[in-house]
Design a protein around this nucleic acid. Structure first.
Lengths: 197, 197
DNA sequence: TAAAAGTCTTAAACTAGTTCATTTTTTTTC
DNA sequence: GAAAAAAAATGAACTAGTTTAAGACTTTTA
């Protein structure tokens, strides 16, 4: 069958871990919602109960919390071919502490909690898909949680640049500072220093 | 059927997410290896390819790396009813960067990579078990990776104490410092300060 | 396309956390 | 249960990263 470009991208993402029949592909696609969000608009805000998990077709978004002083802490940047959302609120149905804002005009496919549950009942293979997806995410978050406490800010910056060169060029230095966990002023100093060397 | 205490603990851990028939329980148990490790002994060392994922029946272990200066960075403390290991090395079959050392005499059940793969083929329900297990771990690591970059050392200490009171009392201040990401000297200062307040 | 708003840079004064050195206390070992 | 080893406490000098403030540069908006 002939699929839309957006669905092709998603199916190709899924086919990394499981093989679906045509029927299963169509069933899966029927469970998804198309979402567009303009630059600077929110996909969700703190206090809301997360309705969807999102697959990014196009664009770039930042997932962040605000601390008591109102300073942002960016948890992740999500770009094409990545999944994002607030898994905790999505699963527990408790209000989220996260904001998700588009830093570019973005197109997403969302799966609602009801359809996510249904998916496992209708196509149990997806248990495997998510087992592997979460396993891989877990491995990278375990590594990241160690970086935060054991590397200096400069080392974390170099790691990020090495691991996500395609993201560095698409975000502001200020947002990168909020991800690395430092002030924009210190981020500026690091970049000046690294470029000089 | 009558199971050993250790197997009962594991089966009860698994039954949080999936129901197994008697036959499946027996099959599962047949895939596990019993392991004992004395206080201060290594369960594994950096450079080795991880052979097992471990479920802790009894005891306490620390999972850590050593940086270029030889300073330890503790990634997790594992106690009864928790799973541990190096998931990355276990999956990729590449040498691990982690050491796992018992801080108390410990008893574990290990599952080898071959049996882990076999488990999914023989009892596909385990895809669901691990999907949920990894999902929950992922949620807590996402939270932790933000703590590392957005909280002060004192706040991280208070968080740890609140979340794992049963672990705090079983480990040394020095190990806690290596987990929090600070020097033992500064850990000592924080504790003095917090107790004074 | 001018004005406004946001981002980046620089610098001086400050604070959280480190390093190094010493002493006291607790735990381990024979 | 004494000796040795490891952990914890304390303090002084240091460094990585913050704060505040101001000016230059860039992007957005009307």
């Amino acid at each position: 069958m002939n699929y839309k470009e957006s669905h092709k991208l998603l199916l190709s993402n899924v086919s990394r871990f499981i093989n679906l029949t045509e029927l299963e592909k169509q069933k899966y696609i029927s469970l998804l919602t198309e979402i567009k969000v303009k630059k600077k608009d929110f996909l969700m805000q703190a206090g809301e109960i997360t309705k969807y998990e999102y697959f990014i077709i196009k664009g770039c978004l930042k997932v962040y919390t605000l601390d008591e002083e109102g300073a942002p802490h960016i948890s992740m940047f999500a770009i094409e071919d990545y999944w994002t959302g607030d898994l905790s609120s999505f699963m527990t149905k408790e209000p989220s502490r996260y904001y998700i804002k588009a830093t570019e005009h973005s197109e997403l496919l969302g799966i609602s909690r009801e359809n996510y549950d249904l998916l496992f009942r209708e196509i149990p293979k997806f248990e495997r898909f998510y087992r592997i997806l979460y396993q891989k995410s877990l491995i990278s978050y375990i590594r990241r949680s160690n970086y935060g406490i054991s590397l200096t800010a400069e080392e974390r910056y170099l790691e990020f640049k090495k691991k996500y060169p395609q993201i560095v060029s698409r975000i502001t230095q200020k947002d990168l500072a909020a991800y690395i966990g430092i002030t924009p002023e210190f981020m500026s100093k690091i970049i000046t220093k690294v470029n000089r060397t």
